[in-house]
């Protein structure tokens, strides 16, 4: 009789080799391996199927699986590249790579545009801007009068919409962000450079058995 391997490493569905993901993203192989540990932790938190569901994403972000949030929903939808309602490991790594400190600014600018283009029309429209401001106010319990909200939205549109067609296109967005780089601060996660320190156990044990 032949001798079979007694243990096989069981990966999550949609697992991709770290070397492949590292070649396509800003991460090194060991950083991708460390991200796998984080991915497993999140994807086994509720449904235990090795895929990140929206509730698990909310739990990881807010410590509350039922907390709905417009922006978290948008991020989840953008991470869900295959549009099948869950995030697999490859999607997780490729999407997080946008937030890596070494990723080109243009990529971050484009991602932020898609994030704020709520209805994917190719433009950030006034109504979308207002919806986001209202969502933020609702989340922060900050009270501003309706008039002030309208004024802030109008003023911002006027600032960004340089061709005055009533909506913000990707070129206007890019110009505006170049003048206001602080708008991109949430598009960079310094943690991603220290990820192997945050999750060293995977790197040390290399492959985790189930």
């Amino acid at each position: 009789m032949g001798c079979w391997l007694s243990k096989q490493v069981k990966h999550t569905p949609g697992y991709e080799e770290p070397a492949v993901l590292a070649a396509e993203t800003a991460f090194t192989v060991s950083e991708v391996e460390a991200l796998y540990e984080l991915f497993r932790k999140i994807s086994y938190s509720i449904f235990k199927d090795g895929l990140i569901h929206k509730e698990e994403f909310q739990l990881a972000l807010f410590k509350n699986s039922k907390k709905n949030n417009l922006f978290a929903d948008r991020i989840f939808d953008l991470f869900d590249l295959k549009r099948n309602g869950v995030i697999d490991f490859g999607e997780f790594v490729r999407s997080l790579s946008v937030f890596h400190p070494n990723t080109a600014q243009d990529e971050k600018i484009a991602f932020a545009f898609r994030l704020y283009d709520l209805r994917s029309t190719g433009f950030i429209e006034r109504e979308e801007l207002k919806e986001m401001v209202l969502a933020l106010l609702n989340e922060s319990e900050l009270c501003l009068s309706d008039d002030l909200v309208e004024t802030i939205v109008d003023q911002t549109c006027k600032l960004v919409d340089s061709n005055s067609d009533g909506k913000i296109d990707p070129i206007e967005w890019k110009e505006f962000v170049r003048k206001n780089p602080s708008l991109l601060k949430n598009m960079t996660l310094p943690y991603l450079k220290d990820i192997t320190m945050a999750f060293p156990s995977f790197v040390m044990s290399s492959e985790v058995d189930d």
Binding site: L61, E139, I152, Q155, L159, S182, K185, L189
Partner: peptide, 25 residues
């Protein structure tokens, strides 16, 4: 005239846009 808050500056402070919490243990 005092400068008004830029809506995008406000939005970028949203908790839902802070992915850093994913890395908190």
């Amino acid at each position: 005239r005092p400068a008004l808050m830029n809506a995008f500056e406000l939005i970028s402070t949203s908790q839902g846009l802070n992915l850093g919490t994913l890395f908190e243990k």
